[in-house]
Simulated assay, not measured.
Amino acid sequence: MKKATNESVIIARHINTFLNEYVPSQKTHSSHTLKSYQYALALYIEFLENKKGISTEKLCSECFCRTIIEEWLQWLMELRGCSPETCNNRLASLRVFLKYLGSREISLLYLYEEATRIQRKKEVRKKIKGMSKKAVQALLSVPNLSTKTGRRDLALMIIIYSTAARIDEILSLKTQQLNLDAQKPSVIIIGKGNKIRTLYLLPKAVVHLKKYLREFHGDNPNPGAYVFIQGTLEYMEK
């Protein structure tokens, strides 16, 4: 493989910027997502060094070609004992980085395009067992409704139950994303990859949300304010 001093510096710089600036700036990405990206890239670098003999000083575009990525996935399964689901998650993380890299270095965009053509590992679908009605009622009875924090937590739990959205998606909600007075009340969720979807709300969830908004945001909520806040109009962390 050719010497790639200049490319290694460029790629290393973009890895640093991707992990330390780009991902943390995306509100839809939780700390767990960041750790997943970090771990996937660390595993890829480990594979390149230990199995391909390519040090970080010799990183180049060829290191991220389709053939090497497929070898990496095989290495994850055979030597590290990763499940197909884990391999797919690692591949997804690497694709996100390559997409970012291509957006910054247009000449490297083809790496992302090649990576999207790699087939995912076949996963064994697991049957998901939901919570019983009794268990849900027990969970919703935990918040202390005599306190402001308890009433906020109940509203938060109800909307999570009603929409089945991720916790980070709910915490990043802004009041302008709520359509509570529509014929079919709904909430606009911005998920991973900035994908937008509309989720309809149960009547009970609408009642609790309206009550919560009046108490925490007043009669005229700021459209740009986060729905779920702490004591002040401050973004609520997980």
Results as ranks from 00 to 15, higher is better:
Leu213Pro: 02
Ala164Trp: 03
Gln183Thr: 10
Cys63Gly: 05
Leu202Trp: 09
Met77Ile: 12
Gly224His: 09
Ser103Ile: 10
Gly102Phe: 14
Met236Tyr: 06
Thr116Gly: 10
Gly53Cys: 06
Lys121Asp: 05
Ser162Phe: 03
Ala225Glu: 03
Leu59Tyr: 05
Asn16Met: 12
Tyr235Thr: 06
Asp181Arg: 13
Glu237Ala: 11
Ile45Tyr: 00
Trp75Met: 07
Ala155Phe: 01
Ile106Gln: 15
Lys133Tyr: 11
Ala182Tyr: 04
Ala42Gly: 02
Glu114Ile: 03
Ala225Lys: 03
Ile15Val: 08
Phe64Gln: 00
Ala40Leu: 02
Lys27Phe: 06
Leu156Val: 07
Leu76Val: 07
Tyr37Ala: 04
Leu156Glu: 03
Leu98Cys: 05
Ile10Pro: 05
Ile170Cys: 04
Val207Gly: 00
Glu70Pro: 02
Ile159Trp: 00
Val227Ala: 09
Met1His: 13
Ile15Thr: 01
Asn6Trp: 08
Arg214Trp: 13
Leu156Trp: 01
Val23Tyr: 01
Leu173Arg: 00
Ser146Ile: 08
Leu109Thr: 03
Met131Arg: 09
Glu169Ala: 07
Lys35Pro: 02
Arg151Ser: 15
Val207Glu: 14
Tyr235Ser: 09
Lys27Thr: 14
Ser93Gly: 06
Leu233Tyr: 13
Asn222Ala: 11
Asn89Thr: 13
Lys211Leu: 08
Leu201Pro: 01
Ile196Asn: 02
Asp181Thr: 07
Leu101Asp: 06
Ile10Phe: 07
Leu140Tyr: 08
Lys51Gly: 03
Tyr22Ala: 15
Tyr39Pro: 02
Gly102Ser: 11
Phe64Lys: 01
Ile11Glu: 06
Arg214Lys: 15
Gly130Tyr: 07
Ile54Met: 08
Arg125Asn: 11
Lys126Asp: 07
Lys211Gln: 10
Gln137Leu: 11
Cys65Asp: 11
Lys122Glu: 08
His208Trp: 13
Ala40Arg: 06
Lys210Pro: 01
Lys211Asn: 14
Cys63Trp: 00
Lys148Phe: 10
Ile45Met: 01
His14Met: 14
Ile190Glu: 08
Ser186Met: 02
Asn50Gly: 04
Lys27Arg: 13
Lys126Asn: 07
Gly81Val: 07
Glu215Pro: 01
Lys3Gly: 14
Thr86Cys: 06
Gln176Phe: 02
Val96Cys: 03
Lys134Phe: 02
Ser61Ala: 14
Val9Ser: 08
Leu59Asp: 00
Cys82Glu: 06
Thr17Leu: 13
Ile106Glu: 15
Ile106Gly: 10
Ser55Cys: 05
Ala135Arg: 08
Ser141Val: 01
Arg90Val: 09
Ile118Asp: 05
Gly193Phe: 12
Val142Phe: 11
Leu154Tyr: 13
Glu113Met: 10
Cys82His: 13
Gln26His: 15
Ser36Ala: 15
Tyr161Leu: 08
Ile167Arg: 09
Ser132Thr: 15
Gln230Phe: 06
Thr147Glu: 10
Leu139His: 06
Gly193Ser: 12
Leu202Met: 14
Pro203Phe: 14
Leu178Glu: 04
Arg80Gln: 12
Ser25Tyr: 07
Tyr226Val: 02
Ile160Tyr: 00
Val207Leu: 11
Tyr226Gly: 01
Pro221Glu: 05
Ala42Ile: 04
